[in-house]
Structures are given as structure tokens and as C-alpha cells.
Lab assay of single mutants.
Amino acid sequence: MQFKLIINGKTLKGEITIEAVDAAEAEKFFKQYANDNGIDGEWTYDDATKTFTVTE
């Protein structure tokens, strides 16, 4: 399945899409990606669109 991350950071904005087995695997990848890029904010997930959003 495809999952999307929308980044609304103070210094980094954009979107990335990955293939993952389930939402838990996608969330783990996205949170590591955000951590690696210094993004720390509020997370939301929309199951209907398979979209995670992080907002700083």
C-alpha cells in the first residue's frame, strides 16, 4: 500500500510517498525520517487517504 507524509515544518515543507505493508510500518519510517531531519511536531493520520501529516 502507498502511504504519504505531508511535512509542514518550520524549515522543511513537502511530501514523500512510500510503499509499506501497513500504517504502523509507514508511521515508523516517517517518524524516523522526521527525526533524522530535525522535525518535531504534532502528528495526524487520515486512514481514508493513507496520509500522515506532521506540523511544527
Rank of each mutant, 00 (worst) to 15 (best):
N37H: 12
Y33R: 02
A48Y: 12
E25L: 13
A20L: 04
F30P: 00
F30K: 00
G14M: 08
L12F: 05
K31G: 09
T17H: 06
E42A: 06
K10N: 08
A48H: 08
V54H: 15
M1F: 11
K10E: 09
D46R: 08
Y45E: 04
N35F: 12
F29R: 14
N8M: 09
A26K: 00
I7W: 10
Y45P: 00
T51P: 00
T17V: 09
K28V: 12
E19T: 12
I18S: 05
Y45F: 14
K13P: 07
D47W: 13
A20K: 08
T55W: 05
Q2F: 07
D22E: 15
W43S: 01
Y33L: 04
K31Y: 07
T53N: 15
E25V: 10
A48N: 09
E42Q: 07
V54L: 09
F52V: 02
Y45H: 09
I7R: 00
F52H: 14
E19S: 13
T11R: 02
F29T: 13
L5P: 00
D22L: 07
N35P: 03
A23V: 11
G14I: 15
E27C: 03
L12M: 09
A26I: 01
A23Q: 14
L5Y: 01
D40E: 07
E25K: 15
E27G: 13
G9F: 03
A23N: 05
G14Y: 05
I7M: 11
T17E: 15
Q32W: 12
T53M: 07
T17P: 06
F3Q: 00
E56G: 03
E56R: 01
T53D: 06
N35M: 10
D46G: 11
N8E: 11
Y45G: 01
L5Q: 00
E25M: 05
T11C: 02
I16Q: 04
D40L: 13
D46T: 05
K31F: 10
T55A: 13
E42V: 03
A20W: 03
E19G: 05
T11Q: 15
Q32V: 09
T17M: 10
F29S: 10
A34Y: 01
D40Y: 09
E19V: 05
G41L: 01
Y33S: 08
N35E: 04
T51M: 08
K13G: 15
Y33N: 03
L12D: 10
M1R: 09
E25N: 15
N35K: 10
Q2G: 15
N37D: 06
A20S: 08
A34C: 03
T44V: 06
K31V: 14
Q2E: 12
A20N: 13
A26E: 00
Y33P: 00
D46N: 15
Y45N: 07
A48P: 06
K31I: 13
A34E: 05
G9E: 02
A26N: 00
I18R: 06
E15Q: 04
I6D: 11
F52Q: 00
G14T: 08
K50H: 09
I16E: 08
W43I: 03
I39K: 01
I6M: 02
K28L: 13
K10W: 14
K50C: 03
E42L: 07
D47M: 08
E27W: 04
Q32H: 08
I18Y: 08
A48V: 11
K13F: 12
A34G: 04
Y33T: 04
G38P: 04
E42P: 14
T53C: 02
M1V: 10
A24E: 02
K13T: 05
G41H: 00
I39L: 08
L5E: 00
I7E: 01
I18N: 08
T51F: 12
N35G: 15
I6N: 13
K13D: 14
N8G: 02
A26S: 12
T11L: 06
Y45R: 12
T49A: 11
V54D: 01
F29P: 02
V21Q: 02
T11V: 09
E56W: 14
M1N: 09
F52N: 00
K28M: 03
Y45D: 01
T11W: 11
G38K: 06
F30M: 03
I7A: 07
Y33E: 12
V21L: 07
F29L: 09
D47P: 12
A23P: 12
T51L: 14
N37G: 06
K31S: 06
V21R: 05
K31H: 13
W43G: 00
D36A: 09
K50W: 13
Q2M: 10
D36R: 10
Y33I: 02
F30L: 09
F52I: 01
T17S: 15
L12T: 10
Q32P: 09
Q32Y: 08
K4C: 01
E42N: 14
E15V: 05
A24R: 03
E19Y: 14
W43E: 00
I16P: 03
E56Y: 05
L5N: 01
K13V: 10
E27Y: 14
K4R: 02
I16A: 15
K10T: 10
A23Y: 14
A24W: 11
D36G: 13
D40V: 14
L5K: 00
D47L: 09
V21N: 15
V54G: 01
E25Y: 11
A26F: 00
A24M: 04
E19C: 04
E15A: 05
L5R: 00
G41A: 02
T11H: 03
T55V: 10
E25P: 09
Q32T: 07
D36M: 08
A34P: 00
E15I: 02
E56I: 06
M1P: 04
K10V: 09
I7S: 09
E19P: 12
T49M: 09
T44F: 14
A24L: 03
Y45S: 15
A48F: 14
A20D: 13
Q2V: 07
T53L: 07
D36Q: 06
A26T: 01
G38T: 06
I6L: 10
K4L: 12
N37C: 04
K13E: 15
F3Y: 03
K50F: 06
G14R: 06
A23I: 05
K10I: 10
F52S: 02
A48D: 15
